[in-house]
């Protein structure tokens, strides 16, 4: 199928099967997400179709309930802070891992990436049991540190991917010309890997924004984030307000994806320019 148009009826049949199955799978992936969007502007408080009429009241509820406002602010504080911290630590580490193969390179890489693999419940319970006696649970700092640990592998992976084609000789050339390491990073490396850095930051922010297990374990009543409130909402009594917040998050996901796609294209152009 990868070579030219199908010729025989059998081949045409299998191509048909392939298209139909793929369409069905994509429908399975997308339909449930899209199905909740109309319900967020439905009149009725029941989350069922057919819709009874248009209403913006669930969005108004969202704005009026201080719980959601507080949750949004918490999510932003924790998300931005842990993104900043994981960007610094993760970018340095990615540059280091990419620059030379030092002894223990494989083990270090495996450790750095392991928060992505170890079940979040283990990272969270471990963090809770270890840091509760030190008073770090129920604080913003505790959650920021915890989320940084969970988000940092994504930064390392994303930045490493853009560094793969980077010529470290450029940095030596900059040093030879008298640039300090920081200047060399800012003026030479950063412009070339900027799309990867931006993608890494988005990845880290999305990780923190979507994380709920660590929040369940470590957060106090003052640090409840959006996913934490949604968790309670789904558990206790699922109301159309949840579909309103879900719709906002879907729009956010679309925006995130569009930004990443733009960054990817930019990165490809930079690489193509390099090769030319």
């Amino acid at each position: 199928m990868s070579g030219g148009a199908p010729r025989t009826p059998t081949q045409r049949f299998w191509t048909g099967v392939l298209y139909v199955t793929s369409a069905a799978v994509l429908f399975f992936l997308l339909a449930p997400i899209l199905a909740i969007v109309p319900l967020s502007v439905n009149e009725s408080r029941f989350l069922t179709y057919p819709m009874t009429g248009f209403s913006g009241r669930w969005y108004a509820d969202l704005g009026l309930d201080p719980r959601w406002g507080k949750a949004l602010v918490n999510s932003l504080i924790i998300g931005v802070a842990s993104t900043a911290l994981s960007m610094v630590l993760g970018t340095l580490a990615a540059i280091g891992l990419n620059r030379a193969r030092f002894p223990g390179h494989g083990v270090v890489t495996a450790i750095v990436l392991s928060p992505m693999i170890v079940p979040v419940v283990i990272s969270s319970v471990g963090f809770y049991l270890f840091y509760a006696p030190l008073g770090l649970t129920g604080t913003y700092l505790g959650l920021i540190l915890g989320h940084t640990a969970l988000a940092v592998p994504f930064v390392v992976v994303t930045v490493s991917a853009t560094l793969a084609g980077f010529d470290h000789g450029l940095m030596r050339a900059a040093a030879n010309l008298g640039a300090s390491p920081l200047t060399a990073f800012r003026r030479v490396m950063m412009p070339l890997i900027a799309p990867g850095l931006a993608a890494g930051a988005l990845f880290a922010f999305a990780t923190s924004l979507d994380e709920v297990v660590m929040v369940l374990m470590v957060a106090g009543p003052d640090q409840r984030t959006l996913p934490r409130e949604m968790f309670s909402g789904i558990r206790e009594n699922i109301s159309p307000t949840i579909t309103a917040i879900a719709t906002i998050l879907i729009v956010l996901a679309v925006a995130l994806l569009a930004t990443l796609e733009a960054l990817r294209r930019r990165g490809e152009r930079l690489k193509a320019g390099d090769a030319a």
Binding site: A35, L47, P227, A246
Partner: peptide, 17 residues
């Protein structure tokens, strides 16, 4: 798109559907 959509949103979606 689903990959970037919040886990809680997707879970809500399945509860509704």
């Amino acid at each position: 798109l689903p990959f970037w959509t919040s886990l809680l949103v997707r879970t809500t979606a399945w509860v509704v559907v």
